[in-house]
Amino acid sequence: MSWLLPDSYSTFGPDVDFLYYAILVVTGVVFVITEALLVYFVIRYRRRDGQKATYIHGSTKAEIIWTAVPFIAVLGLAFISIPSWNMMKNPDSVPADALDYIVNAKQFEWEITYAGADGVTGTADDISTINIMHVPVNQAVNITLRSEDVLHSFFLPEMRVKQDAVPGMDITVWFEATRAGAYPIGCAELCGNLHTTMGGTLNVYEAADFEAWVASQSADADDADDADDQEDQ
């Protein structure tokens, strides 16, 4: 049992993990102090027969201190969170050179569309895969997230990415992986009976390997489709 985050492998990782540990430290200190005081007071001031409690109604000074200090602390946590949030979720933050993807969610699979050779999604040379997403390392990817039935949530734990897919909306999701490898894709929003099966794999390749994969897919679209079908099974 651990309060440590699993390793992250995207450019969002350091920000999210720093904020998490900052909050862990702040709340951890408050937790230890308040719980320790609670236990100490219960022991120190336990019942003694024939004795009365000290008749105190309060202290304005104390109230001001313990209003102002938490107020400053939580506002501080809010303000240090704002830049990371804007970087992660504001569509204006997506790097200009990001590769375009479309991720279409439906009960109970992820359909991933790649731009293909022309670099534009929605054209004839698009490639698509089901439940397996291929991306190059150290390269931002710009995903248009859609759903064609109910809510889903596109969850890449190691990338520190999570975004609901909403039918009728095109939502921008971006990230940049920093290490090659295979990572889980999950659905984090209850989406129906087989919600639990809606997992997938994110394959992060070295740039050359990714080029090779795209080339192999583009060479023969029919073969590519067959290969995808086999991957599914």
Binding site: Q51, A62, P70, V74, L77
Partner: peptide, 28 residues
Amino acid sequence: MITTMVIAVPSAIKVFNWLGTIYKGNIH
């Protein structure tokens, strides 16, 4: 996020006042 952080303050006030309530009590 900002409003949510702020709502932690009155909750904190209550916790500190509860601690203040048992402080120097004669606890049964």
